[in-house]
């Protein structure tokens, strides 16, 4: 597999949320607004890239039998860094994401990529894999958040900046920013992604 394929793999063909259907808990829980979803995506992407680099760098002298605990310690170190940094840098976002920030540590995508990719490949490929998977995850979350927010609240905000506002005349369907909307929109996004992949052949 060449480096470009490694990079784009995570965005559509092996998109972690839409195709592999992992990392669902944060994807559904924080996608009530595009802003929160994007923040979650970036946080997870940072942990993914950083832990991929470190795990790939130490793979030559990691004993096979205890590799999983080692992965977990490495991942939880980066999660703690993200936890404290976000708490200081954006307290509102931190409060919105709540328990899902420390829970990045059990995100199947990160441990999954450590085991399936970073442990078996060189550092450069692991960085590209981390970036590709991270973009796939962030993009899916942001789209999910944007769709839910526009239907459920009539706005789209990104990086704390309001991109779009349908105004007073729009009657939002509140259900979409509540829990049922998350399941519903993700279900249709998976169906849409399938349709697109099938079209492309």
């Amino acid at each position: 597999m060449n480096k470009w394929n490694v990079f784009v793999n995570g965005i559509m063909k092996e998109n972690p949320v839409l195709v592999l259907v992992i990392g669902l808990c944060p994807a559904l829980a924080v996608s009530g607004s595009a802003n929160d979803a994007f923040g979650m995506g970036i946080a997870a992407t940072f942990v993914l890239i950083a832990s991929n680099i470190l795990i790939s760098a130490v793979r030559k002298f990691t004993p096979d039998q205890i590799r999983i605990p080692i992965f977990i310690v490495i991942i939880s170190t980066f999660v703690t860094i993200v936890d404290y940094t976000m708490h200081a840098a954006d307290p509102v976002l931190y409060a919105n994401l709540g328990v899902f920030v420390p829970l990045i540590v059990v995100n199947c995508i990160i441990l999954g990529r450590a085991e399936a990719f970073a442990y078996r490949n060189d550092v450069l490929s692991s960085i590209l894999d981390g970036i590709g998977m991270g973009i796939g995850f962030t993009l899916t979350l942001t789209v999910l958040g944007a769709v839910r927010e526009i239907i459920g609240n009539g706005t789209i905000t990104l990086l704390n900046y309001e991109l779009l506002n349908l105004g007073e005349g729009f009657k939002p369907a509140l259900m979409f920013i509540m829990p049922p909307g998350a399941f519903l929109v993700l279900g249709f996004l998976i169906a849409l992604n399938r349709l697109l992949i099938k079209r492309k052949g």
């Binding site: 049922p180 909307g181 399941f183 519903l184 279900g187 249709f188 998976i190 169906a191 399938r194």
Partner: peptide, 10 residues
């Protein structure tokens, strides 16, 4: 998966 998610939504 899509129909399962829609069921979960209901």
């Amino acid at each position: 998966y899509p129909i399962i998610f829609i069921t979960a939504s209901l």
